[in-house]
């Protein structure tokens, strides 16, 4: 229940790339192929364990539709991490990355950790964007990169957790002012962090996961 830190994440990217599916897979460990369109923003939360510390991720899953764009921008503020998602089977979603990135950089803290995600890696036969292209884009813009599949759960945990690790690393380096909530980080209710992970708290405390492990 208690946590050392709380990180606010946003998930952004074109409509239909699988943002809500990634969230559902991460929080509920399930895949729902048919999703209604997200209105504005939806929420999810989960506890993860980084370096022996309980960290609560509070995730804002934004609407991808173009017409919601001006509204979803309002939600960017105060995010510590962003998952920028495209669909490896639809090149246009990759092409729009620059515009999403601009938006994200403009409307949130400069220290925000951005994870670029090429989703739907299970659909290898329909691949339209090469893995190398994703890697190159990430390198160029200083992002972390992963390919994931919300359907098979491949790398989903890793994507969320590696982002948290990077944020945590930045905190330790003193790059984030954890006392400024505009950075999307909050210190949890103090003390008794380790004592109260009772049997009742049934969050799956995923252990540390190696970065490039997995199936993709």
């Amino acid at each position: 229940m208690t946590y050392a830190y709380l990180f606010k994440y946003i998930i952004i990217g074109d409509t239909g790339v699988g943002k809500s599916c990634l969230l559902l897979q991460f929080t509920d460990k399930r895949f729902q192929p048919v999703h209604d369109l997200t209105i504005g923003v939806e929420f999810g939360a989960r506890m993860v364990n980084i370096d022996g510390k309980q960290i609560k991720l509070q995730i804002w899953d934004t609407a991808g539709q173009e017409s919601f764009r001006s509204i979803t921008r309002s939600y960017y503020r105060g995010a510590a991490g962003a998952l920028l998602v495209y669909d490896i089977t639809r090149r246009e979603t990759f092409n729009h990355l620059t515009s999403w990135l601009e938006d994200a950089r403009q409307h949130s803290s400069s220290n925000m950790v951005i994870m670029l995600i090429g989703n739907k890696s299970d659909l290898e036969s329909r691949r339209d964007v090469k893995r190398e292209e994703g890697e190159a884009f990430a390198r160029e813009h200083g992002l972390i990169f992963m390919e994931t599949s919300a359907k098979t759960a491949c790398n989903v945990e890793e994507a969320f957790i590696n982002t948290a690790k990077e944020i945590y690393r930045k905190i330790q380096q003193g790059l984030f002012d954890v006392h400024n909530e505009a950075n999307g980080i909050k210190i949890g209710p103090q003390q008794c962090i380790s004592s109260s992970v009772g049997p009742s708290t049934s969050q799956r405390n995923s252990g540390d996961v190696e970065s490039n492990s997995g199936c993709c």
Partner: peptide, 26 residues
Amino acid sequence: MSEKDDIETPVIAEATPTLENGNSEP
């Protein structure tokens, strides 16, 4: 009470907003 139980499936949109001229930013 685990966190996951309270994550809602984002399935509220019954209607698909079709209009493209959304908000102005005056």
